[in-house]
Each structure stands twice: as C-alpha cells, then as structure tokens.
Amino acid sequence: MRTWLPLPYTSLLLLLVWLLLNQTVAPGHLLLGSVLALTIPLLTMHLRNPQPAIRHPIKALMFLFRVLWDILVANMEVARLMLRPKLKLRPAFVEVPLDITRDFPITVLASTISLTPGTLSADVSADRSRLLLHVLDLEDEAQLIATIKHRYETPLREIFEC
C-alpha cells in the first residue's frame, strides 16, 4: 500500500480533476486517469514536505461548509461597508498568536481568514508563532482574536490533530 499508492488523497484528486476536465466517465478516460493518478504521485512524492494528514474527514467537510457560509456573510459585510456614500473605515493591523504549528494547517487558517469577514492575513512570523492580519473595520481587537481562535483554529486543530 505504502509503496505503490503513497498519496491516496492526491491520487483521488488527480483522477477527479482529469475526469472533470474531460467531462466524461468513459472507461477509456477512467483507465488513463487512473494510470496518471497512480504514476504522478510516485514521480513527485519526493518533492513534498511531509504534512499532517486529515484525521477527521467529516469534521473537515463541516469546516468547509462553515467557511463557504462565512464567505457569503463576509461579502455582505464588505459590500455594506463599500457602498456607503462616505467611507467610514477603522482599518487596523492585528496580531494573532498561533497555537497550531505545522505549515499546512497554518496555510489553511490563513486562507480561511483571508476569505472571511473583513480580515486579511498579511504575514506569518519566521518562527510560525504569530499571524499578522489586516482588518477593514475593527470593533474590538480581543473579541476578533477570540472569534478566530474559537471558530477556525480549534476545528483545524481537531481535524489535523496537531
């Protein structure tokens, strides 16, 4: 299992993308896609940094839906801010201390923050312990940090168990 299928999720994703690109589930394309999905990870697995695996797929799926919902809300928020005839913004830089340590979970967290209400990740400190955010309209710094930690970081820690 380890030797000929080193990255099962990547293989599945490659097969799925191949079928989507070709718009078909014909046996020929299934076969060709499977061959590609098996050989590409074998050729490229040494280029990867090892990352923590997703331990709880169902929680990950729930996290995804929550993020998609938050994106919708985030946009209403930004739209409301932007359409006022006179812009009244309270921009701010905020630092969030990070509890998760591995690169991949931090990337997911930073992307989530960028896509959700009025916040944008701007930088990660070199030792991966702090995240710099830019906020469009800051009300309460402590509350924002608590929301991010509670709403996004805790589920991510559970998903990746790190």
Binding site: A79, L87, H134
Partner: peptide
C-alpha cells in the same frame, strides 16, 4: 463591487480586501 472597492479604498491594504472577497 470588487473593482469599485479597488478604486474607492484609501490605501493599499484596505484596497486588497475588495478583490479577494467580492471577486471570489
């Protein structure tokens, strides 16, 4: 709206908010 934000916002860091969220 995303492009409007790009034109209206006061500085670069606030300007970045509009294209990421609204355009996506």
């Amino acid at each position: 709206l995303g492009s409007l934000g790009l034109v209206r916002m006061p500085d670069f860091y606030t300007r970045m908010h509009a294209p990421t969220k609204a355009t996506t």
